[in-house]
Simulated scan of single mutants.
Amino acid sequence: MTTEKDLGPELEAWSRTRHPWTPDELVGLGAELAEALESEKDWDGFAGENWLAVFEGDVILVYVHASYPLVVVKESVAARVQEVAPSSVPIIVIPDSAEPVLRCDPEILKLAFPEDAASFEEAIGYGEFNPAAFSMGDLYFRTV
């Protein structure tokens, strides 16, 4: 059984202290992480994607926020990512990226991702996003 995780405390702290970073910094870290994990990376900045993904096959191992330094990583590769990522980049370790084991207060989600606040309200209202049980994939697609 996969352990559940409340993202609230970490997202709230991140949202209050974050600062922008450049696409070069994002792509540089993504390349380092992909190399360290012997994986691939994908990010379409021209399409306005908000997350760079590092993946192996069809499994995303690491998500890196495009606008602000933040890494969300599967527990299974967290130690290696923590060795590679700069100490100034917050890292959130999650038990699984595909299973709905994450939860977060909707107000903190809106604080952390203000550009997507209306989307969260609508998705929660229509039952398309459950803040009490979601996957990182769900969060990715809601904020991409």
Rank of each mutant, 00 (worst) to 15 (best):
Y126H: 10
Y140L: 08
F141E: 13
W14R: 01
G125A: 12
D42K: 09
W43V: 13
C104R: 12
L29G: 06
E122W: 11
L7R: 08
Y63F: 15
L33V: 13
I108Y: 03
P106F: 09
V73H: 02
H19M: 10
L102M: 09
D42P: 00
V84Y: 06
A132T: 10
V89E: 13
C104W: 05
T3P: 00
S135T: 00
P95C: 01
E115K: 12
A31Q: 14
E128T: 04
Q82L: 07
F55T: 03
Q82W: 00
I108N: 02
A13D: 11
T143K: 00
E12W: 05
P114G: 08
S88K: 13
E25A: 12
G28H: 04
W21E: 12
P106L: 06
S67I: 02
E40N: 12
R80A: 11
P9D: 09
W43E: 05
K5A: 09
L26M: 01
I94P: 02
H65P: 00
A34K: 04
E56T: 11
P86G: 12
A34R: 04
R18S: 11
A112W: 04
E25P: 03
I91R: 03
D58M: 06
A31N: 06
F141Y: 15
G137W: 14
E4S: 10
S15M: 13
L109C: 06
F55I: 00
A53T: 15
A79M: 05
V144Y: 12
E38R: 08
D116I: 00
Q82N: 01
P86T: 01
D138N: 10
L70R: 05
D44A: 12
L70G: 06
E56C: 04
A98L: 15
D58Y: 13
D138L: 03
A47P: 04
V59P: 00
E121F: 02
V59S: 11
T2N: 05
H65Y: 05
A118E: 15
V77P: 03
K41E: 09
P114D: 11
R16E: 14
V84R: 05
F46S: 15
E122H: 14
P9V: 10
A47M: 04
E56L: 09
I91L: 14
D24P: 04
L52M: 15
V54G: 10
P69A: 10
R142D: 05
I94L: 06
N50I: 01
T17M: 09
I60L: 13
L29P: 07
T22A: 12
V72L: 14
T3N: 12
D24N: 11
N130I: 13
E35N: 10
K110A: 10
F129L: 03
F46C: 03
P106D: 09
W14S: 05
P106S: 08
P69G: 03
E12F: 10
Y140E: 10
T17L: 07
G57F: 04
K74L: 14
A66M: 10
W43M: 01
H65A: 15
L7Y: 04
E38C: 00
V93A: 07
N50L: 07
A112N: 01
N50E: 14
L111A: 13
F120A: 07
S88Q: 13
H19E: 14
E75I: 00
A53W: 10
D42T: 11
E75V: 02
I124W: 01
R18N: 02
P95D: 03
E35M: 01
E99S: 14
W14N: 07
L29R: 08
A47G: 02
A133G: 08
A47Q: 08
D58R: 15
G137Y: 14
P90L: 03
P106T: 06
